[in-house]
Structure formats: C-alpha cells, structure tokens
Write a protein that binds this DNA or RNA. Structure first.
Length: 631
RNA sequence: GCGCCCGUAGCUCAGCUGGAUAGAGCGUCGGACUUCGAAUCCGCAGGUCGCCCGUUCGAAUCGGGCCGGGCGCGCCA
C-alpha cells in the first residue's frame, strides 16, 4: 500500500501494470532500472529476497554535480543485506550503468548512486505531454472515490468576507485536485437558514425598514439597510405584523444568496463565489432538514442507539463523551422544543451518509476544531467508517490594516468583503478577474496549516508586483512565442518526432523536461495530501526555470525563433536550423500545456496576453512608498 | 488546565513518509536591454531551522520535555 515500496508493487501484478501505465517522469525511469537490477541480484543470490521490502528514493539532487537523478537505495538496503552501503553501491553500479537510458553512475558520499541519463529519457517526457495535452498529469476520470466535499457554508446572514475567502478557495482547490486524481467530487454548501441568527437578521431588517436601530445582537451593517429598502419596494407585505412567520427571513436569505441586482452591498453569495470560479453542485438548506422531518428522524435513530440523555432541566443531550469528545452535547434546549444547530448537523450528516458517498470531507476553519469530535460521534451512529470522514482544517486569516490588527464586527459596520477587495484589484490591474486571481494566489501560496495575516490596504493596493502576475506573465510569454512563430514564420509546434526531439539537448531544456515529467507526481501528491499549495510552488519553479533559460539563451547568442540580427543577413536561411526551432516550439508548447493545466488546478486564469500596466503612471499614490508589512 | 496548529534569512513563506553544502519571493546592494514580451534575468550579502534531551551511519524532518504565539474547550453557528 505504501507508495515507494517497490516490493509491494512487485508482489501484486496488477499494481505493476498500473504503475507502468502511470507516467511518472525521469525519476521513475531510474526507479524502474534499480528494481530491475535488484531483481537480478536477488535471482543470482547476491541479495536476500528481503530487499524487496525496502523503500528507496529516486529524485533530482539539489546540486547538478550529483547527477540528473540520485538514489539512496544502497544505503537503505545496507542493513537488510548486511553489507556496507558503499560496497552494496559498488555491486549495483555496473549493472545499473548497463541499463538502457543510463549513461553513467557514480558512487558518492555515504553511498548515494548519482546517475546521468541519456537525452532520450528526457525527450520522452515531451512525447507524453503532447499525447495527453491538458489531460497530462490527470488520472483517468471517475475512477476514484465518490466524495462529498462540503466547504464555505458561511452563514447567509451577511456577504462573504475576505476571511471566508480562504475556506472557499482552499476547498475549491482541494476539489479540483481530487478530481484531477480521478475522484468524483460533489461540492456542497450547507446553508444555515434556520435558528437564531436568521431570526436576528429578519428583525434587524424589520427595524431598519422602520428607521430604527437593530435589536440586541442584531445586524447593523450597510447591507441590512439595502435589504430593508428592497423588501419595502418589492415585498412590503412581509413587513406587516400579520405576515406569515418566517416569510421575511426567507426573503432576506434569498437575497443574501442570490443578490439584489445593481447592488454592491448585496451582490449575493452565489455571485461572489461564481466570480471567483467557485461553483457548487448542491446548496443544502438547514431549514429543509426540519421541514422534512429529517431532524426528528435522526434523533429517533440516536434514541434507538441509546445515546440520548435527558438532562434534569428538560434539555436533551447526545452522549458524545463516549467517543473522543470531552463532554456531552445538548441538541434540544431546556425549553423542551428548541433544537440547537448541532441537532441539524446530526441530521445533515445522516443525510450525507444516506446518499452513499464513499468519502465525506468537511473543510472548516481552525476555530471549529472543537466541533470535529461531535461530528465523528454523529457519523458513528449512522455507521459511517471514521477513516472515510475527513475534516480539513485551515488556519485562520487575521486581518491587519496598515500593520495594525483590524477587528471586524457585524455591528461595527467595517466588514471587508471579498467583492470589495477583488473589485479594487480588478480596477488597478485593468482586468476583470485579476482580483480573484490575486486572492486565490495569496491564499494558495501558503499551506492550509499556516495562519495568514492579511493586510487589507496591501491586499487592495499592492497588486502590480503581486507574484500571481509573475506566473501569468510566464504563461503569456510562452503564448507570445508561439504566436510570433505562427504569424511571422508560419511555424507551428510539430507533433512529436524522434528526430525533432533529438534537437533538444540544451541542459536547461533537458532539466525542464525533467521538471515537466514530475508534474503528474505533484498533482498526485497535492490531491493525496489535500495540499494544493504544492501545485502552486511547482508552477512557480517551472516559471522561474523558463524565464531563466530564456534570458540565458540571449546571453549565449541563441534564440528559439530567428532574430533580426540573423534575418537581416542575406541568405540567413541557409544556416538556420529549422528543425531545432521546431523542436523548441514543441517544447515551449509542452511547457505551456503543463502551465495551463496547473493554473487550472488552482483556479487561476492563464491569460494568453497581458496588458502591461503603465507602471508609475497610475501608481496608487505612491509617495508613502514601501513599508513592506506583508508579502 | 486540556486539545489542535504554528515557530526556518530583515519580512512573507516552502522544505517535514530522515539523506549530500537548508531553498524561494519580497527587501538591500551590484550587474545584464539591439525586448522571440525586461511584469525579466544574473550575482553579493543575509541562518544557533525557538531551546534541551533522545532515537541512528545520518535529524529542519521522528519521539519526549520546555519556551513563545494563534485558535478552540457555549443549551451561538
């Protein structure tokens, strides 16, 4: 089951087949070669069969002098083989060197095997990328688990705030990563449209419509007044004293979700998410759980399981303390009829189980950590295996303003919404969607386990030197080369041909092919570890490699496309290596393909052109410059 | 007090299923434009990987203990 253990794969023929069909790049070429050599040594009795249990590395060394790829196999096997690492390395070395595609093998340090490969091994990556196009790196679709991914689920009693953005973006990126590794993902937003907060919103709107202050604990931000105006104009009957119970609340929630046309304050949660490329398959209403009797039904199951406890004061509790939780949790208050949110959540998760998913994933902010044990207890009652339930906690976003802690409050009227931040960046960058890209990049450039400090002012204004534009620029630049090739020289990237590929011999070109070859592994790891930031760091590195190469070519008086200093010479075409240009175009196109695939996994757009902003011209009052508090 | 997360360059962060000389961006300083897109590239400087023990050929990485910070421990959601 452990990936990396060649033994388990050899033991299972099907696993071998799977592995062979799974392209894993240059490192995997060495891994296979090592396995072949070890099998030879086992067969000839020079190594005990136990070496098959070993887990060894095959990776690109940090320094170029250590080869294209290196493995620690001799060090790992030394103990079980009862030989010194360097002696074992010496046994493996000549046989490994004889394997196809391997040019040279050195023994180094405590027993590393440093390996240099033939160019064909790298060039094969180009073939693979061309074959699969944007599907490169992705597992076959719909071969994995059926997953229910619940995220955001923010209270619809207000617009989505920048802090909600992290959960939304992280959850969406996890969903994309899971899909890329073959899982079938259903995205769901649980709407808390029931209970006290909703009632408070309705009362606050009623008060605002009458020109009064909100009730104790109510909502006082600007959007409440906008809601009140809309209700007055479009559904004033809901404000009457004899209006049906809950009508006003339903109208308010409806507007918070779908927005009020033309209003910046109430743009609608669905629209906010949609503008960031985040779409849900389901919007599950808490209120409907009650309306359809699912809460009562769930509690009946709990009662039958004997996990309910009547408290002395009339309240009803779930004996969650029999599990991991540290105390029992009340599900019906001591008035004997009011359910807590936990009652709804029990029913909701019971419903999820009933829908037959193989895996349930909840994305929650770290402040909900204490809630996990409760959910596990509930899922236990419904017979759902704990291993198939995951809670992904992301650490919180703390807001700063000009370096000082910034407290948001629903009554303070100082809410910073996602829309507000993305709008400002859109405007500064002169492109709709730039803000969403920037926010996505910012949140995905940190591990979910890392707390984030977000400075509002910098988030809104510091945008032209935002690293997201570096990535996008890299992509646009690749597109520009391909565009120019076609428009000026009538050349298009050719299909893979061995003769063309053989023209790719520049060390940087081979190194980048190696990098492209590791992309499928990055996708797999990002999905398996629920760590989309790994994809982002991969792309960052890819971009750096290319831009560095591109400048280096210039220094070396070389170029992908013929330059004016060449074409201005009469008869220049006689000395032009046209096949090399074609090979490089194919190579550029492969990089662009992986680039676009990776950006898609992050939900960041991959523009083919970027309009360069006039740097200082509109420089957002740049006199109080720099003070790089954040990022 | 208990639980989870974090502590790596001046700042923001990667690296953590143990591997060779710990990386990137921003910032500082110095270089590279005849632009296949310079929103770029190259270089210099910058580190007790919070501290202490332990595990072993080898620890930023694993285990234990401390120190410091964030969050949680509601009949709120």
């Amino acid at each position: 089951m452990r990936s990396g253990a060649f033994a388990s794969k050899l033991a299972d023929p099907a696993a071998i087949e799977y592995r062979r069909s799974e392209f894993m790049g240059v490192e995997e070429h060495l891994r296979e070669s090592v396995v072949t050599v070890l099998e030879e040594l086992v067969a000839s009795g020079q190594l005990p069969p136990e070496v098959r249990t070993a887990v060894f590395s095959s990776e690109r060394p940090k320094v170029a002098e250590h080869g294209h790829v290196a493995t620690n196999v001799a060090m790992v096997l030394a103990r079980v083989a009862k030989v010194k690492p360097r002696d074992l390395a010496a046994t493996i070395q000549p046989r490994l060197q004889a394997q196809p595609g391997i040019r040279q093998v050195d023994i180094a340090g405590p027993g590393f095997l440093n390996v240099w490969l033939e160019p064909q091994v790298f060039q094969a990556v180009l073939h693979e990328v061309q074959q699969l196009g944007l599907g490169y790196g992705r597992a076959p679709a719909a071969t994995g688990e059926r997953v229910l991914l619940e995220f955001v689920s923010a209270n619809p009693t207000g617009p989505l705030l920048v802090s909600h953005g992290r959960g939304a973006i992280f959850g969406d990126a996890v969903g994309r990563a899971l899909e890329a590794s073959g899982h079938r993902v259903t995205r769901e937003y649980y709407i808390n449209d029931f209970g006290n907060q909703v009632r408070l919103l309705a009362e606050s709107v009623r008060a605002a419509a009458a020109g009064k202050d909100p009730p104790e604990g109510g909502y006082g931000a600007a959007y409440v007044k906008v809601l009140a105006e809309w209700i007055k104009a479009n559904a004033s009957e809901a404000l009457k004293d004899d209006a049906p119970e809950g009508l006003l609340a339903r109208l308010c929630i409806g507007r918070m979700l779908d927005g009020i046309p033309g209003s910046d304050e109430v743009r609608g949660i669905r629209n906010t998410l949609g503008s960031m490329g985040i779409f849900f398959d389901g919007w599950y209403s808490e209120e409907s759980l009650h309306r359809w009797g699912k809460v009562d039904a769930a509690l009946l199951q709990l009662r039958e399981r004997g996990v309910l406890l009547e408290l002395e004061d009339g309240a009803l509790a779930f004996k969650t303390s029999e599990g991991e939780d540290d105390k029992d949790r009340v599900i019906r208050k001591n008035d004997g009829r009011t359910y807590t949110y936990f009652a709804s959540d029990i029913a909701y998760h019971g419903d999820k189980v009933g829908r037959g998913y193989e895996r349930l994933i909840n994305v929650l902010g770290a402040d909900h950590h204490g809630y996990v044990a409760r959910l596990r207890a509930a899922l236990d009652v419904f017979g759902f295996e704990q291993q198939r339930f995951e809670v992904l906690l992301y650490q919180l976003v703390s807001l700063l303003r000009d370096g000082q802690p910034y407290k948001m409050g629903k009554r303070l009227g100082n809410l910073i919404t996602i829309d507000e931040v993305t709008d400002e960046i859109d405007q500064a960058a002169g492109r709709k969607g730039a803000g969403a890209d920037a926010l996505r990049y910012y949140y995905l450039s940190r591990s979910s386990e890392q707390p984030i400090k977000l400075d509002i002012e910098i988030a809104k204004q510091q945008n032209l030197d935002n690293p997201v534009f570096y990535l996008q620029y890299g992509h646009a630049r690749l597109c520009a080369i391909l565009r120019r090739a076609k428009e000026v020289f009538g050349l298009e990237a050719p299909r893979f041909g061995v003769a063309h590929a053989a023209k790719l011999v520049h060390p940087d070109e081979l190194a980048m092919l190696q990098q492209l070859g590791s992309y499928p592994r990055v996708v797999r790891d990002a999905a398996r570890e629920r760590a989309p930031h790994k994809t982002l760091f991969f792309l960052q590195e890819l971009s750096q490699q290319f831009q560095s190469y591109f400048t280096r070519l210039k220094v070396e008086r070389d170029a992908i496309l013929p330059q004016s200093w060449q074409t201005s010479q009469p008869g220049w075409e006689a000395t032009w290596d046209r096949d090399k240009t074609l090979a490089r175009l194919a190579w550029v196109d492969a990089i662009r393909t992986v680039y676009a695939a990776g950006l898609w996994l992050l939900g960041i757009s991959a523009p083919e052109r970027m309009v360069r902003p006039s740097a200082e011209a509109d420089g957002v009052e740049s006199d109080d410059d720099a003070e790089p508090a954040t990022s």
